[in-house]
Design a binder for these strands. Structure first.
Lengths: 198, 198
DNA sequence: ATTTTTATCGACGGTGTGTAGACTTCTTTG
DNA sequence: CAAAGAAGTCTACACACCGTCGATAAAAAT
């Protein structure tokens, strides 16, 4: 029921909306500096320029803050989801483009995406956000796959999780994301070829 | 340096080794009943039949307990790693067998494996344990792949992470692991076929 | 049998959390 | 513009869990 933002405050263009943004920005910054565990409610509040108790006016808990942060990022991603599956391109081209786009997303939002993955296990709301995003992506890719071979949602989903996981670790280890994209695209394409022949 | 078990106690067939096992068993049981977050040092100790402070004689922290538990499971898995890559079988057969074996492992140890995945982000020692296991598996599979196509360690690793992730979610959602194994095997095999043709 | 090691416990101090209640500052509107 | 009310902030408190210290009991070793 209750969304990430606790229901205390009515929505309007109030002054405190700036605070809300400031808090999320602070959280994102601390996420990079200290990591999830070390980051405390107090440190977030201080960096946002308010007191610990004041933060509780906007968010119910540290997890609520993180949830809102993930939501902000995931929403921003969905916004620019330039569903680039133009019908004319070949499946291989669409795949390559998609995976490259994914690489860009991880480059841009790696910090928050890693947090989303890490928190997905313990926080149902974040899990929903994240699996939702991946599932949506999988649905789109099933469509693409269906052009070249017998469509199999389960396979598309598995390949999506492969992409997620591979980029996750690449991001954690600071690997070259272009190389990662290359590898993923290869597997996607090879799978299509290998499935078509049957 | 220090292993999972804090260095306080000298190793022998002492009485307290039973306690150590009891603690790990208790932790595993609570892992299933309460989950990682809710499970407290006190609850583990109580279930093991000792006091909270007594537990600290054996382990330095809750994380140390979890680490030891993961290690116990991962070691047990490595033990029975019946490296079934008999040279005579076809790549497809080896893959199918391997993935089925993976399904068995998740059926048997799903609880701890999920915990390992969940904790890998925040606990370096567990991360090492887990990535080590997956990497070892990836190395073996690279070998298998190399029989049928140009070997690519990066691809084998990506496919391993796919397998891990897919089984993880299947385990979380209580999905049918046989179906999951089927899907994964299909992708492995299709990838080989799709790569050989190039 | 006494000395040493292993094991256990009660009690303390610390850190971080979430909440309650008083107080201040905006904003609305008669 | 003043009073009422809403929005925002702060100090103080109570709580839960953690990790450690020092005293004590049980087990092994000599």
């Amino acid at each position: 029921m209750a969304a990430a933002t606790s229901g205390k405050r009515r929505h309007g263009p109030r002054k405190g909306d700036l605070r809300e943004k400031a808090i999320l920005d602070a959280a994102e910054e601390l996420l990079g500096r200290d990591g999830i565990e070390l980051m405390t409610v107090e440190s977030i509040a201080n960096r946002a320029g308010i007191s610990r108790a004041a933060l509780y006016f906007y968010f119910g808990s540290k997890l609520d803050v993180l949830t809102a942060l993930v939501k902000r990022t995931v929403d921003a991603m969905a916004e620019q989801a330039d569903v680039a599956q133009a019908a004319e391109s070949s499946a291989d081209d669409v795949i390559t483009a998609s995976v490259r786009h994914t690489a860009d997303l991880w480059r841009e939002h790696g910090l928050v995406l890693r947090a989303a993955v890490d928190l997905a296990s313990g926080a149902p709301e974040i899990r929903g956000l994240w699996t939702g995003t991946v599932t949506r992506y999988a649905a789109a890719m099933t469509e693409v796959l269906s052009r070249a071979s017998r469509p199999d949602p389960a396979m598309a989903e598995a390949l999506c999780w492969m992409t997620e996981r591979t980029f996750y670790w690449a991001s954690v280890n600071g690997d070259d994301l272009d190389r990662t994209a290359e590898t993923c695209a290869q597997i996607w394409c090879a799978t299509i070829r290998g499935t078509t022949d049957v």
